[in-house]
Amino acid sequence: MRVTTKGQITIPRKIREKLGIVPATEIDFVEENGRVYLVKKVGPANRKHTFSKLRGVATVKMTTDEIMALTREDQ
């Protein structure tokens, strides 16, 4: 793996999937005893992506009005 002239690296897909690193995930590099570790930050910036993998996977063929009717009490 090489560092680009802009100082960028590519995190391998297996690592990204294992750690749940998606676009806009905040990460840190931590130096300890002469080694550098990539650490995923845990916080509000990363929490909003929790359900991003599920976006667009719903298969319900209902209108918005039909879905809303299910959430309301009978009147």
Score class of each variant (00 low, 15 high):
Leu19Gln: 01
Thr10Trp: 10
Thr63His: 04
Arg16Lys: 14
Pro44Arg: 07
Arg16His: 03
Thr5Gly: 13
Thr50Pro: 02
Val57Gln: 15
Ile67Leu: 09
Val39Asn: 11
Thr59Leu: 12
Lys61Ala: 10
Ile67Asn: 04
Val30Met: 08
Gln75Asn: 14
Val39Asp: 05
Ser52Cys: 09
Val3Ser: 02
Thr71Asn: 09
Lys18Ser: 03
Asp74Asn: 03
Met68Ser: 05
His49Arg: 15
Val30His: 10
Gly43Thr: 05
Ile11Val: 14
Thr25Asn: 03
Gln8Trp: 01
Glu32Trp: 12
Ile27Lys: 12
Gly56Glu: 01
Val3Cys: 02
Glu17Ile: 02
Leu70Phe: 13
Val3Tyr: 05
Thr25Ser: 14
Thr59His: 08
Ala69Glu: 13
Gly7Lys: 00
Glu17Asn: 02
Ile11Phe: 15
Arg13Ala: 10
Val36Phe: 06
Val39Gln: 12
Phe29Gly: 06
Thr64Glu: 11
Pro23Leu: 01
Val42Gly: 03
Glu31Trp: 02
Pro44Leu: 12
Thr64Asn: 08
Tyr37Asp: 03
Val3Met: 03
Leu70Gly: 08
Ile67Ala: 08
Lys14Ser: 07
Phe29Lys: 04
Asp28Met: 10
Leu54Pro: 05
Thr25Pro: 02
Lys41Tyr: 09
Gln75Ser: 10
Leu38Arg: 10
Lys53Leu: 11
Glu32Tyr: 11
Ala45Phe: 05
Ile9Lys: 00
Gly56Phe: 01
Val42Thr: 08
Thr64Pro: 09
Val42Ser: 06
Met1Arg: 14
